[in-house]
Amino acid sequence: MTVYGVGLGPGEAELVTVRGKRVLDSVETVYSPGRLSRTVAREYVPESKLGDLDFPMTRDPEKLRSAWREAASVVAETAADGDVAFVTLGDPNVYSTFGHLRRTLSAFHPAVDVEVVPGVSAMTAFATALGVEIEAGTGLSLREAADGAAPTGPDRLILFKVTDAETTHEKLTDAGYDVQYGRRLFMEQGETVVTSDPTDVAERDYYTLAYAEKQGVDRDVATAKFEEESA
């Protein structure tokens, strides 16, 4: 049978894809790694179909490997009797817990088929929420910025896991960037914030992103406006 990794999008139930909904309808069991993904999944499947898996928030490699192996064992056993889904916020292939499950299934349960159903990533939803166009030909870097980190270099960056916005902001502005922040965008849980003031998102929150753009960056955007023809 098949284990489906289903991307639920950034957290708003209406942003689940049509294919994702179809898979959730069809499987026998839907596993969730956390409260937020479970909340979205409940919009589409009954509580009786939902199962929980433990993915601890720790950097201890032994604890992590043990948790991944246990989760893979549970999922593989269930998949022996019917198709199952593992849901995750965003996209299963982009900084997702699903990657740990997929690699562990491949290592210890290679007979289990795995299929990914893409979802709307928080990063692309973030650009929409800010009204930022990443135009064709633009260089854009995606980086993690936890605990005050502030990667620099490219003209434009989307940073995620911004858990110390004030420190990150100071470093980025010193490096010549303009910065905007978004918190819990397109999410039905918690307060949505869009701001250029880091103090508005000073409280530590895993679901905070930043868009940084170098001051004075050149833009060459094609438009439908043409120079008037000379008489």
Rank of each mutant, 00 (worst) to 15 (best):
T78P: 00
T39C: 11
R204Y: 07
G90Q: 05
V221H: 12
H109T: 05
L140H: 01
F160R: 13
G82M: 04
T97K: 09
T195K: 06
R102E: 12
E188I: 07
G20T: 13
R65S: 14
G9Q: 05
E228F: 02
G20C: 11
I158Y: 07
R219S: 14
V201L: 03
R22T: 12
E133M: 09
A222L: 15
V27W: 06
T17F: 07
F55L: 12
G148Q: 10
D164T: 09
V3K: 01
P56A: 02
V221R: 14
F186H: 11
D200Q: 11
E203W: 09
A145F: 11
V27I: 06
F108A: 11
T168L: 11
W68V: 03
L53S: 00
V27H: 00
V117A: 07
Y207C: 06
R183W: 08
L172H: 04
E133F: 04
G139M: 08
D81Q: 14
R103S: 14
T97W: 02
N93P: 04
G34A: 08
R184K: 13
S230N: 00
T138H: 02
T192F: 10
D147K: 14
Q180P: 00
E43I: 02
G51K: 15
A129G: 11
W68R: 10
I158P: 01
H100P: 00
V18T: 13
G5A: 15
R204I: 05
V75T: 00
K171M: 00
F98A: 13
T17V: 08
Y4C: 03
T168P: 05
P198L: 00
Y44P: 05
G5E: 04
A85K: 09
V179I: 03
